[in-house]
Design a protein around this nucleic acid. Structure first.
Lengths: 126, 126
DNA sequence: ATTTATGCAAACTATTTGCATTGCC
DNA sequence: GGCAATGCAAATAGTTTGCATAAAT
């Protein structure tokens, strides 16, 4: 089961880097399709998933709406505006040992966590 | 726009309480349908949404899979087993002032947060 | 009588999958 | 040439919505 270097794979990786933080699969697809209209949605999804699997990009599963893909720079938390729905990066250190606050783990081995904030963004506040 | 007391609404509320923590819309539907096969899925969704809106139950939007509904007892965080996919309640105090750790809020008014842990449950560990 | 709410089906969003074909290695 | 990967369409999961009808007030 060896991996092959296809142009589509390279395009997906390039688009995620190009789009910066938290792009959706559809945004990645649209970005690539501008110059390569032939690409299939399935191919984009398959490659996003593969690239996330081998750690080339990070998949962020959102509590609502589509999953997001980040070109990995640093781990960070996200905030969603409940008014306009837009997603923001949160300027806060990740808490690596948050799992230590758990009293009874019931045999669960914790492997990580995500925090999602919600609120109202500056523009929607008025 | 006043609200009416329908049997369906009462049944949805009762089923959420009955099923305890983190029931999905489909589980609520199935539970009610056992005794009232006539109920519509749309009605269940509409009532879950309405009841959550007026604070009678709590909606927990999951990063993956269907949304969950809790009969409100106390706020708590959740953990998902990456092997079997099951959802667990986490035995840990909520951090009410977690938002204070954020450096630059960029004008965002924070209204709350959710934490989702992931890992491997006791059964899947072996 | 009014008008909210229901049941049903169709629509919708996000994603996955089956399959014949293409094209890396 | 073999088999991973593609493009396409159909399938799936979860949820929302339009509409005629029913029923709460």
């Amino acid at each position: 089961m060896d991996r092959r270097n296809t142009i589509q794979r390279a395009l997906v990786l390039a688009a995620v880097k190009e789009l910066g933080s938290h792009a959706t699969a559809d945004e990645v697809y649209a970005e690539i399709a501008r110059k390569h209209p032939g690409i299939g949605r399935g191919t984009v999804y398959r490659n996003l998933s593969l690239l996330a699997g081998i750690g080339q990009i990070a998949k962020v599963e959102m509590p609502d709406g589509p999953d997001r893909y980040d070109h990995i720079l640093d781990r960070h938390y996200h905030a969603r505006c409940i008014s306009c729905g837009r997603l923001f990066d949160v300027d806060m250190d990740v808490i690596p040992d948050l799992e230590k606050n758990i009293r009874d783990t019931r045999g669960f081995i914790f492997a990580g966590h995500d925090i999602f904030f919600k609120g109202t963004c500056r523009e929607c506040k008025k």
